[in-house]
Simulated scan of single mutants.
Amino acid sequence: MNDMSDWKPKRFWKQAAVAETAEGYAVELDGRPVRTPAKAPLLLPTRALAEAIAAEWDAQESEVDPINMPFTRTANAAIDKVRIQQAEVADMLAAYGDSDLLCYRADSPAELVELQAQTWDPALDWAAETLGVRLRPVQGVMHQPQPASAIETLTRKVHALNPFQLAAFHDLVSLSGSLVLGFAAALNWRKADEIWQISRLDETWQEEQWGPDDEARALAAVKRAAFLHAKAAYDIST
């Protein structure tokens, strides 16, 4: 969840450093605190996140390039976007649980049906054990609602996240198409890259049947990098 638009000032500082304040951790450029694009103070909940952001600023050369500053972009989104509409963002992400990728299964061919069950059922079992919700898989693409009690439980868990966690969690869920896999990544069910591959099962299957598509592969690589960054951002925002 990122937005730094075309904001590219020249580098004017010699050193970026972390400063601890009463409100959290700040990043300072030669002693001057960094602000978000909306001019809010860039105050972080953990030293680890502040240090990651300071390292990004230190790595800039003659011109600031937001593309190379993913932790900064995520923090900006948390402060300028998520924090001011936190309940709405949480509700939007919780809604993925009612149409979770893992619950919509093919009815043919038999090999794909079996592969989906073998790959996705363990994630649903994990959600039942760890999150306390049992989502029901269905065949086809027509929406079939999940139990209201399960969605209520998942909604409470999403609302419990702080704005910085929620900004990262937004990408874990939206990129994978699965609330369950978002939680699975956040809570370390398996390695983030393995969870990403689980979310790509259908695309991988299609590629194996029809051959690779260079454009689709390039887009998938960008999304994978964003997913892995979101996991790292979630971890150091906690």
Rank of each mutant, 00 (worst) to 15 (best):
T204H: 11
Y234E: 01
T36A: 15
E207Q: 14
M69Q: 11
V64C: 07
Q86N: 01
P70F: 06
V27T: 13
S108E: 14
A38Y: 09
I53L: 11
P66N: 10
L187E: 12
V141S: 15
G182S: 04
A87M: 03
R156F: 04
Q60H: 09
E56H: 11
T130C: 10
D202E: 12
A230G: 03
R35P: 00
A218W: 03
N68A: 13
R105D: 10
L201Y: 00
A148Y: 02
R134M: 14
V158F: 07
Q15N: 11
S62L: 04
Y96C: 04
V34W: 09
G140D: 08
Y25T: 04
W7Y: 13
Q209Y: 04
R35E: 14
L43C: 08
L175M: 09
L161Q: 01
F12A: 15
D235F: 02
A38E: 14
A59P: 01
E88T: 07
T36P: 13
P137G: 10
A77C: 11
Q60F: 09
R190A: 15
Q139I: 10
A160D: 15
A186T: 09
S99D: 08
A110Q: 11
V138K: 13
S174Q: 06
A106F: 10
S237N: 10
A75C: 13
N188Q: 15
A87G: 02
K231L: 01
I151S: 03
D91L: 10
L172I: 03
R190S: 11
Q139L: 11
S199K: 07
C103V: 09
L44W: 04
E114Q: 15
V158I: 07
A40Q: 12
A110T: 12
S174K: 07
T238V: 10
P163L: 05
A184P: 00
L42T: 09
I79A: 05
A232W: 00
T46F: 08
R224P: 00
L228Y: 06
E215Q: 06
L102S: 09
D80I: 05
N68G: 14
L44Q: 05
L42H: 13
A17V: 02
A127G: 10
H229I: 00
F169W: 02
I53P: 03
A232E: 10
L101W: 00
A216Q: 09
P45S: 12
K157L: 15
T46Y: 05
A77N: 05
R217D: 11
D58I: 03
D65A: 12
M69I: 07
L219F: 01
T36R: 09
Q85H: 03
G177E: 04
A233H: 01
A148Q: 07
N162L: 05
L102I: 05
M1N: 07
A106R: 04
E111V: 12
D6T: 14
